[in-house]
Design a protein around this nucleic acid. Structure first.
Lengths: 163, 163
DNA sequence: TCCCTAGAGTTGACACGTCAACTCCTACTT
DNA sequence: AAGTAGGAGTTGACGTGTCAACTCTAGGGA
């Protein structure tokens, strides 16, 4: 603590407070998605990304790029979701061999309900309690943070919980 | 999307942008802690909490309360950290049987270095780029979110990465 | 043609986290 | 003293996430 770099108590407090608020909000939104629809945030992200893809079908590597995930993470996630019957690994066999990932009817049904429910939760727990000047500050901070730390945003996964 | 509750594109965009900024910042801070000191965020939280406890010793249940974690999570974490030689489960055997958790010399050495490094990282990546009015907005939003969602804050774990 | 490199995808080992079920001990009740 | 309720702690099953190593195949020289 004799380091000149040491944070002052009110600085630690801002950091801690912000971290805790974040964690509570994400927990709340995730838990509601889980209890109302029965899918996790990770499953929701994959399903939404597939839903918005042309033909509702993508390759693993494109899914990974769109979500900003590692491809091994996508592969593990797909293995679990295939087991739950939410997605299919379509192996185009002899001809194209493109191994596209697609939605099952069950997956499509769930994600369509989830988009509505999740939107409502985001509105209730994030957007509504946000005062206009808070929204402006958060937007500005977020953009400058992404510019500073993010190399190239995934860009296209609008509406998916990014993580 | 024909739901009246549906979010407008700029609302989705604010949510996505904020989520992504958060994720990038946490990733950056965690990765630096890992590469500079060689411990994870979870390990750091446990070590800092122990370091600040009277006698650097706590029971599992108090650790859990202070961190805001489930006790089973604490137990699993301690099992891994005991394997790495960072903490000890002191079983006071016949007399008190209090099963206090303590720091090993190695654990103490690491956490003392980590506090300095982590503080510097928080300053560089969170506090410094924050304009004063952004800090005020983030503090206000965090506090109202905690009041709305948090039932009883853990309170005392000042300085630990709360999650 | 044969090799061989580079991309796509999978797998295994491990860290992290939750939930539910379990053991163990203490303290209270009768 | 026997019984029991409850707190403290652990464990196992499983979902989530990273890293490194692996397979497979297409395409591109020599």
């Amino acid at each position: 603590m004799r380091n000149p770099d040491a944070l002052k108590p009110e600085e630690w407090d801002l950091w801690d407070t912000w971290m805790q608020a974040q964690r509570l909000l994400l927990q709340e939104i995730d838990r509601r998605l889980q209890s109302e629809i029965g899918i996790s945030k990770a499953e929701f992200s994959v399903l939404v990304t597939l839903l918005r893809a042309p033909g509702s079908e993508m390759r693993v590597v494109d899914l990974a790029a769109s979500l900003g995930w590692e491809k091994s993470r996508v592969s593990h996630q797909l293995t679990r979701m295939e087991g739950r019957g939410l997605v299919v690994r379509a192996e185009s066999g002899a001809s194209g061999r493109r191994t596209g990932i697609g939605l099952t009817p069950e997956g499509r049904r769930l994600v369509e309900r989830a988009v509505v429910a999740h939107g409502g939760n985001v509105r209730r727990h994030f957007l509504d309690p946000l005062a206009p000047e808070q929204a402006a500050a958060i937007r500005a901070w977020s953009e400058q943070t992404i510019n500073r730390l993010g190399q190239g945003g995934t860009g296209t996964t609008e509406g998916a919980a990014p993580e």
